[in-house]
């Protein structure tokens, strides 16, 4: 098991946004969480990354409860987050953004990995000295994904990477995520776009305000009546 979340709760100023959720991410899988806006998907990720302090529960990564470590140690344990809304360092160049992704690394392979990334994302290579705020939305999403890859994660968490992208760009992002997974990185993908996410999923969970209401393989959920009604607009 890569990640095991047990009974995680998160509250903002006493108001619970996440109520005791539990789920597993299996090593090597693409695990998907779908759910409508505001049900607490991003909050779960903030809890995992240590940006919000959970009010209860535990997060086991490779068997260790990572909530006990300070937040800034998260990325050196092998977890990287590609956050909702990209969250780039907007006044920094593309290259500086990518370098920041490797901030927690201590090895000397960073420059080599940077060139690998540029090979994988030729669009970013051309724009490496451009400030990230001058890029298009799709290019910015690529920078965000590339930045999280620069941490060399074993587990990559992506929060709504398809958000705000043109359909052709969504296809590209989907194939990038599938490639990353094939190269051995475990993926936890958060999406509102259930249609594309469930097609990629080895295993998926459906979150609503009461917590997880459904789970199963991607195929099972795609066939599920309730999922079709609510999330696939069938």
């Amino acid at each position: 098991m890569s990640l095991k979340v047990n009974n995680l709760s998160i509250a903002y100023k006493g108001i619970e946004a996440v109520r005791g959720v539990s789920f597993d991410v299996k090593e090597g899988d693409i695990t998907v969480i779908i759910g409508a806006n505001g049900v607490g998907k991003s909050s779960i990720l903030k809890g995992i990354m240590g940006i919000e302090k959970p009010t209860g529960g535990e997060v086991l990564y490779k068997g260790n409860n990572i909530l006990k470590q300070p937040a800034n140690k998260r990325s050196s344990t092998g977890i990287a987050l590609c956050p909702e809304g990209r969250q780039l360092f907007h006044k920094m160049t593309v290259q500086e953004n990518l370098e920041m992704g490797a901030y927690a690394r201590k090895d000397n392979q960073i420059n080599k990995d940077l060139e690998e990334i540029y090979k994988k994302f030729p669009r970013l290579s051309e724009r490496r000295n451009q400030k990230s705020e001058t890029l298009s939305g799709g290019e910015q999403e690529l920078v965000a994904i590339a930045r999280s890859l620069m941490a060399k994660p074993d587990l990559l968490i992506l929060d709504e990477p398809s958000w705000g992208l043109a359909p052709i760009m969504i296809d590209q992002v989907v194939s990038i995520i599938e490639d990353i997974n094939k190269e051995g990185t475990t993926i936890l993908l958060i999406e509102q776009n259930a249609n594309i996410a469930l097609k990629m999923a080895d295993y998926a969970y459906v979150l609503d305000v009461d917590g997880f209401v459904l789970e199963g393989t991607g195929e099972e959920l795609l066939k599920d009546k309730k999922v079709q009604e609510i999330y696939l607009g069938a």
């Binding site: 990354m49 240590g50 800034n72 140690k73 990325s75 907007h90 920041m100 901030y103 927690a104 941490a151």
Partner: peptide, 16 residues
């Protein structure tokens, strides 16, 4: 500079 531009993203990449 990263913290000044986006504190949350700075935390995500492991900046104390």
């Amino acid at each position: 500079r990263a913290v000044s531009q986006n504190k949350e993203a700075a935390q995500i990449v492991g900046i104390n």
